[in-house]
Structure formats: structure tokens, C-alpha cells
Design a protein around this nucleic acid. Structure first.
Lengths: 172, 172
DNA sequence: TATTGTTATACTCTATAACTATA
DNA sequence: TATAGTTATAGAGTATAACAATA
């Protein structure tokens, strides 16, 4: 109740002093939470990454899948699903997409005829290289000369938050 | 081509040595990117936050909206949409949800009869307090005794990444 | 003519259940 | 019976176009 108790219906300080847009809203409370900053920052990163990958015909998840398949040739879909933290059911269309573009192949595993081994094609390996280069540029843009030590602190903090959800008292 | 070139179809080292699950997949390349760590960590934070808010009948976005309305009583929907970075169209159902639960009220603005001023009800203010307490607990769980200095470094880094998208050479 | 709130719609992402073929 | 891959589907989240009321 601190908004000048006169009778005149003050039309909101924020609404008055706007020259172009209207971001005169205080998010001070939310700024007290690290999760809020993580979300806002990640939104920016995600948007830029998707723009970066669009010319290559990749999305964030198809890019991640391609990288993991090149780095772990022969892995099975269920392993990839676990690594990407997506449901097996949802991984199917992702792998479909990569296979349709001849970036990877689904190869029957002789020892377990239920499973498919995922392997990159030469085209897949080539796109992998191009995508990595593009994403390196994206990261450089996002970090914009951030000190290496700061980066490492952030990575350690993120890893710690992620690991915290895995139970276990074994320190890393 | 480093997988023991014998004829025997080696069934993938990862697939062999699994005791319980199958996370024997290397994500070393992706780990070189800070964005990857941000995503993985934020997934954990988001999941835990939603679990934290569920008993209060709130989702991340309705919680954020409630906080901004309590902290900025009288703000208009378009301002809230801008602050939350969601489309006005999508904000409608969010505000509907809060209004239906009598946590906020939509009050006609006399000076601009197109707009609604959003104000918290006493119930809204009460839930705000309960939600903040719950989220403080959530953050403490996520950060698990992280040093204050580390937290500040992370927040500054996140802010910098977010701000980087706003153009401008004025350093902060 | 532009803006606020609104409706309708579509597209992506994600989560779940159930099916098939193998084990 | 359990598992790998698949299908279908439903629920969120998000983005766009168009409309009525008002400026």
C-alpha cells in the first residue's frame, strides 16, 4: 500500500515512464534464486543453438544424438536414450530422422536380434565435424570472452547440481 | 575403426560389462560445452522445482507469475508477459488459473479500459509466502552447501550470458 | 492505425501404455 | 517373464493469426 495514497488512480509508475517497451517490472525476488538465472540464461543459449544448427538441418536433440553416435559407434538405442535422458519411445523418431538423412545406420546386432547398433555414416561423420565447429562458434558467442577459470567454476557447479540428484555420498 | 578388427562380432564393450543399467556411453565431447552442462543441470532443477510446487498447486510458470504480481501489484498482463518472456496469448490461461483460484484479481484500469491491472488477493499473498519458503528449500537441496562465492560467480555468469543477447557494448 | 486482452490453432516436446519380436 | 524397439496417444509448452474493444 505504498503507492501514494491519494484518490487519483495513479496509472502505475512502470506504465508511465516507458519510452519503447515495458520491462519496468521488478524481478528482484526471483533473482534471489540461482534456478531463475539458469532458466533465463539457458533460454538464450537454447534459442541461439537452434538457430546455429538450423542451417545444418539439426535440432538440439538430433545434434546431441549424432555426437553420441559418432563418439560411441555401435551403441544401442536404449543406451542412447539413457544417455540423452529421453524415453526410448521418443528416441525412435530422432533416430528415424538421422537414418532418413543417411547420417547413421541401424545395424542388427547378431548376438541380440532385438537390438540395433547405431553407427555413423561418412556423411554423418562429416556433419558431426561441421556441427561441432558451428557449436564452438555458438559457445564463443554466448560466453563472449569469459575467463577460463569462471567457465570451469560454472561447469563444476552445474555438474554438482546434476550429480546431487543421483543420491550417493561418494564425493566426486 | 578401432574395434579389434577380427571377424568375431564383438558385442560392444559397453553392452558386456553392465551390471545394472547401461550408462557406459561417453559424452566427453558434449561435456566440452558449457551449454550441455547447463541443460543437464537445469533439467534436474526444473524437475525438482515442479515436484516442490505440486503440493501448492503451482507450476513453475504460475509460481513465477504469482511472485511478479505480488512484487509488482497493479501490473498489466502485457507487462507480465514481457517479464516472463511468454506470449500474451499464452499468459491468458496462466492468469485464468491464478484468478480461478482467487490468488489474484483482474481489475479494470480506469485510465485505459483495454487493460487489466493484476493484483494479489490475501490468499495469493499467503501462497506466495508458502511458495517462497518451499522454493528456498528446493534451492538449498539443489545447491547442497555450495559456497556463497561460487553461487555468485554462477549468477554473474548466467546474467552475462543472458545479457549478451541484448546487444549493446555497455559493460555491466 | 495501433494496442490489450482474447480465442483458436498448430507444432514441438515429453510421458505412458500397449504391441511385436526376440531373449 | 523380461527386454529392445515400436506405435499410438495425451499432455504440456510455445508460437502465430485473427478478432473485439479501446486508444
Amino acid at each position: 500500500m505504498s503507492r501514494s495514497g491519494a484518490g487519483k488512480p495513479t496509472p502505475n509508475i512502470a506504465a508511465v515512464a516507458q519510452g519503447e517497451e515495458s520491462p519496468q517490472v521488478s524481478d528482484a525476488t526471483l533473482c534471489g534464486f540461482i534456478g531463475y538465472h539458469m532458466k533465463r540464461a539457458f533460454n538464450v543459449v537454447q534459442a541461439d543453438l537452434n538457430q546455429t544448427l538450423k542451417p545444418l538441418g539439426l535440432r538440439m536433440v538430433t545434434y546431441s544424438a549424432l555426437v553420441l553416435i559418432v563418439d560411441n559407434p555401435g551403441l544401442r538405442q536404449s543406451q542412447l536414450a539413457a544417455a540423452l535422458d529421453v524415453e526410448r519411445a521418443n528416441l525412435v523418431v530422432i533416430v528415424d530422422e538421422l537414418e532418413r538423412r543417411d547420417l547413421i545406420s541401424r545395424d542388427r546386432v547378431p548376438s541380440d536380434r532385438r537390438a540395433y547398433a547405431l553407427n555413423p555414416t561418412p556423411a554423418g561423420r562429416h556433419l558431426y565435424e561441421r556441427a561441432l565447429e558451428a557449436v564452438r562458434g555458438h559457445e564463443a558467442r554466448m560466453l563472449n570472452g569469459m575467463e577460463e577459470e569462471t567457465k570451469q567454476v560454472v561447469i563444476r557447479a552445474m555438474s554438482r547440481i546434476r550429480r546431487g540428484s543421483e543420491g550417493g555420498s561418494r564425493g566426486g
